[in-house]
Design a protein around this nucleic acid. Structure first.
Lengths: 216, 216
DNA sequence: GTCTATATGACGATAGAC
DNA sequence: GTCTATCGTCATATAGAC
């Protein structure tokens, strides 16, 4: 049996991991710009700095490359809700969550766009993950919010729909960056744009939930 | 010179208009599901109930068909801000705007997705429209909000970013309907889902702007 | 493991009969 | 105006030398 992880792996396996990471990094860029159908294996190979055939050697098909990339992006996506825990202060938890999502839009806009493109077209490869792990996560975190509401620590709100709105507002700065940039006369959203966006979203969510900005 | 409009046109021109509308209606569905590159002329022809060659007869190229469709969608998109006028009541104007955008997501999800896909991939065909008419519209409506803020009729807020958030929250119910449906265990967002979503968005925006729901 | 050269098929677009 | 048959191109994927 060959080693799959990267810890304690031999130089052979380590080089393999490096090549795979190299291919996935390029693929994130290309799929983000062109979508699944719009991306060609030639472009994907050029982005990775390798001949076309090597991509087929490592992943078999374009579809397998795409789904591997999607899985790694979804894992990132799911890991951002850590701050929402029953013992946390609601305003602090929501602020931390929104800031984490905005940081993700700023630092990984291409990953966000690959994910958005997949969902936009009906999530053919991701639907089972969304109905499984994501649904479970939303139910868990919604229960935390319900607890806060029942305890009078925040105003009543429909927790899943609050999440849908937070996802939409934060991801729009990555996914629809072209539109925001066009309206603001920028080539793409810059640091100031993200700062103003974060403030606006925090204002809407915190006040909408009857909370004050966390003192610090 | 042939007549382009549909009023006062002869039966020849009227049939031509009908065929074009038929092709565009099918194209909206196909482009929404597959994107520009993912849609094939065969699928587009099948969706219109016509042979492939007829589409080329009416539009020349796939790209021309796509841009014609995009233009018609953008015109719809721009026409939703009518309620935001200086003499209106802020809470009523924002409520009407949000309800109109949600109605659009509910009734024309495919049009919304075609637009989203175009922007997501950098708006290659729409960039000039976004930097032109859309930017002008945002500046005009932002000035209205600035007036309300200066008059103490609503809390201070960054108007363009408020628009970005409202667009994101309302359009997510069309564009990311697959994700929302998966989380809520629905095949797609239904009437109840849209009602709860509308209430949540109204709560965030109105309270976020220091407003009370309009009495009615 | 790597890469060149190529097989196979689908695509957008058009020619030309009706 | 409409439709069938087809052209040339470019895609994914693979065979086989190194």
């Amino acid at each position: 049996m060959t080693q799959a992880g990267n810890a304690q792996a031999g130089p052979r396996a380590r080089q393999r991991q490096a090549r795979i990471a190299q291919i996935l990094a390029g693929a994130e860029r290309v799929f983000a710009e062109a979508g699944f159908e719009g991306a060609s294996m030639s472009e994907l190979a050029a982005a990775a700095g390798l001949p076309k055939a090597n991509l087929h050697y490592y992943f078999g098909t374009k579809e397998a490359l795409y789904t591997t990339l999607l899985d790694s992006i979804l894992a990132l996506w799911l890991s951002a809700t850590d701050s929402i825990r029953p013992e946390a202060e609601p305003a602090e938890a929501l602020t931390a969550y929104i800031r984490a999502k905005m940081r993700w839009s700023r630092e990984r806009p291409q990953a966000s766009r690959v994910f958005a493109n997949e969902v936009l077209h009906g999530a053919p490869y991701l639907r089972s993950h969304l109905a499984g792990p994501l649904r479970a996560l939303v139910q868990e975190k919604s229960a935390v919010l319900e607890g806060w509401i029942a305890a009078g620590r925040m105003a009543p709100v429909d927790p899943p729909h609050l999440f849908f709105s937070i996802w939409a507002m934060t991801q729009t700065y990555a996914d629809f960056g072209a539109q925001i940039g066009a309206v603001l006369d920028l080539p793409e959203p810059d640091a100031d744009c993200f700062a103003r966006g974060t403030d606006t979203i925090l204002q809407l969510v915190l006040r909408g939930c009857g909370l004050e900005p966390p003192g610090r």
